[in-house]
Design a protein around this nucleic acid. Structure first.
Lengths: 193, 193
DNA sequence: GTGTTCATGTAAACTGTTACATGATTCC
DNA sequence: GGAATCATGTAACAGTTTACATGAACAC
């Protein structure tokens, strides 16, 4: 149920089209919660039916049109309620750790390649998240700037701090995965002599 | 596609019933890849249709019966191939980090409770994974003992090392999440004065 | 005029969760 | 005799991925 709330979180800043949201889910928010366009458009229609957002047809160019969505009062209430509801934790389901437990079944070169891919995957994410922290620190994040402009000054510190705190967690996780992958590479090499 | 491979991994050690597998997916393997019984039974039937496992009816008590599954040669080949195939990484989808990014919308007590729950969740997992490492180190893991008995002595070191390596990764992750939650608690308290 | 971006969907397949449903065996 | 464990499923729903499909606007 997080997708609708991630959408609401974005729409509390400003009205957006499905495509605007998609762009955010590909970058910024997408580094914490990703969603493809094929999931966004139907979800927006559904949220409109549920009264969480208001859709409004806007003309675009000569013949083009687009649908701009605004969070309703009910949508904002729903988002706030979700924010106050504890998460239910799901059980572990971690494909790379599952595989690592049985690496003796893989060719050493293949296990090696998979650990390298793991390291590279998180190195990329790490760079993205570090960039986000840099944007927060330098005030160059457009979304955050817009959000701060829409709330009273005394709430700015908390808003900025929680964003930074989130990305710090993602960064620490990426660093831990990179270290683990490197220990894996050393282990594979050691076992193969 | 990991569930079928996790099942195959267990069945390479010894034949098992759906219920046996379910027990393992609740504890041991379940700490890396969990699956409920309602997912296991249909999957086993499907894997039997696909020729990955052999199901054999076994009588149990007076009138009871159960179905014991054995990995076929095709199943073992499939598992080995999966082990040599690089994983496709999915994009981020992390509900607690998504929420943390918008904690200014939550009541401080609620945000606090959620960070405490996060810490406690991973503290529990941490204890489980540490116990697994302890079992590996002391040779008291029944599944690992059975597996070692089924393979040549020169493969024992690698088999044990990869299991330990897996749980070390899970442990490092749990520790990182606990530290993050504690930083979150400190931040929430600081912002509330 | 061409390529990129903006724009919006449908459909099928698969994965996963939760609830419902049943009954035998074993141990105390 | 009752409780815990062993045993096996179905059904409905929710969430996700991937592929298919289309077309306008804008910048060069």
């Amino acid at each position: 149920m997080s997708l609708r709330h991630a959408i609401l979180a974005l729409l509390t800043v400003e009205p957006m089209t499905g495509y605007d949201l998609f762009k955010h889910f590909e970058s910024s928010v997408g580094y914490v919660w990703h969603a493809p366009d094929s999931q966004l458009y139907p979800m927006l229609r559904r949220m409109e039916d549920e009264g969480l957002v208001d859709g409004e047809e806007v003309s675009w160019g000569q013949r083009g049109k687009k649908r701009r969505y605004t969070a309703t009062a009910a949508g904002i209430a729903e988002f706030r309620q979700w924010m106050n509801t504890p998460l239910e934790y799901t059980r572990e389901r971690d494909p790379i750790h599952l595989k690592a437990a049985y690496f003796e079944w893989a060719e050493p070169e293949s296990a090696r390649a998979q650990m390298l891919a793991h390291r590279d995957h998180f190195a990329e994410r790490l760079a993205q998240w570090q960039l986000k922290v840099h944007e927060i620190d330098t005030g160059t994040s457009p979304m955050l700037t817009k959000r701060l402009a829409s709330i009273p000054a005394e709430e700015h510190a908390a808003t900025v701090a929680f964003k930074r705190f989130t990305y710090e967690g993602m960064i620490a996780h990426a660093q831990q995965e990179i270290e683990w992958a490197e220990r894996g590479l050393a282990l594979i090499d050691q076992l193969a002599h």
